[in-house]
Nucleic acid binder design. Structure first.
Lengths: 230, 230
DNA sequence: GATTGGCGTCAAGATCGCGTCAAGATTTGT
DNA sequence: ACAAATCTTGACGCGATCTTGACGCCAATC
């Protein structure tokens, strides 16, 4: 459990409440220190104050989310609507406004931990593999059978999303919201365009497809070798 | 997306906001109706007002959580600390206090949907099984005695709906509304056509039928092995 | 025994969704 | 500010899917 805050008073208060509940607690005072700490040894959860001296807290959220799914509960004095929405959309799992009650904070932390427990085991190799497709999340590099493939950001995000759930259908809406952003959801034309481009770049064989269309539903990525045809 | 509230005004407001974002929205006015609706066809998410005429909202939470992981965002006028903590501990994924901003509610809904997408892999693949018919909801694949069966979207939805309630009769109206949409209800000719196509594709033996017609009522799906002919 | 209503089956036409291409528009990098 | 890359948008063909109407069957009813 990592608490990120630059006010010693709050740091002590929150830390004490958590320790009283027998959580292991570490504390840091800057955004950069938080990112480093999470990268070094991912905690079970991060309590993140938005008012940091170095980086904007939302920026910390965004950066951490590029390679980690660690739950993040944001604390903030600012009640600003837009900031709240932005933080949540950039990867925060909850947003608690100061002054807050300790009981509520703890309850929301329990919810976040519950979600994490339900989530799939995080062996974040930072490299996803589906058949002969290799996706290096950190380096943004894709490899197909040893051949490097040059993808645009959206193409990469699309492929990486599908690769996180091999074989599983992701709906049009899900893909749009994860790749294009929360305000999208019905622009399925984008998906057709990008699916087409991906198939071309991945050199997908239509008789043994890697990227499969589920008509009316969405797309899924499979390992053609592991998926015998019925 | 299911919105549960007994105030028509709020129902309309939240419903409209969601529909504007292209979510499919259904609404009910009581806790019992909510539980029934979730059991029949689990929505992607539930927006649950705590102030219901029949059941306590927290009780609804608790009951639904016994068999479903559907994300629940609670709305409430009561700001009471204890109620908030209780709701969160009883399975609510978020708690928004009235008056709330639509933008924030939508952002929190997006967070809940994100969690759902990340968590959905561990409930081992959500495979429905009725006799030798296997329906993999996540992969959108149907298997009959080891043979893969290719179904159209409507055929799949029809079969999946019946398979969710093995042996139980679903009425024409229910099936039409769940598969074709809320504006349908009397087009029972569709059902005859699709039932016929399903029987053909499932290779259904008329002497040991899997898909059974209840004349004048609806259809049900049974395990022929478990249901000896009388 | 004729009639009626619900069901199963079939097939033709209408519709919808998908893949593809390419031309702007926008963003990004230099 | 310019050039390149990327994203967005419209158009089009095609095939799968859905819808619709017709017809025969069966059982219940009169």
């Amino acid at each position: 459990m990592l608490v990120v805050d630059d006010e010693p008073a709050l740091l002590r208060a929150v830390g004490a409440a958590l320790k009283a509940r027998d959580y292991d607690v570490a504390t840091v005072g800057t955004g950069q220190a938080a990112i480093d700490a999470i990268a070094l040894a991912p905690p079970d959860l991060v309590v993140l104050d938005l008012g940091l001296p170095d980086l904007d807290g939302i920026e910390v959220c965004r950066r951490v989310r590029e390679w980690s799914d660690v739950p993040i509960v944001v604390l903030s004095a600012e009640g600003s609507e837009a900031r709240k929405v932005l933080a949540l959309d950039q990867g925060a799992d909850d947003y608690v406004t100061k002054p807050f009650s300790t009981a509520e904070l703890l309850a929301r932390i329990r919810v976040a931990l519950r979600h994490r427990n339900h989530a799939a085991a995080d062996d974040d190799d930072a490299v996803l593999r589906v058949g002969d497709v290799e996706i290096d999340l950190a380096r943004h590099v894709v490899d197909v059978g040893g051949r490097k493939v040059d993808l645009t950001p959206k193409e990469f995000a699309f492929l990486a999303l599908l690769a996180r759930w091999p074989g599983r259908v992701l709906t049009h809406r899900t893909i749009l919201q994860e790749v294009w952003g929360p305000e999208y959801g019905s622009e399925s034309q984008y998906l057709r365009v990008y699916a087409s481009q991906l198939r071309k770049k991945l050199d997908d064989d239509p008789t043994r497809p890697r990227l499969i269309t589920e008509p009316g539903v969405g797309y899924r990525l499979v390992d053609p070798a592991a998926e015998p045809e019925g």
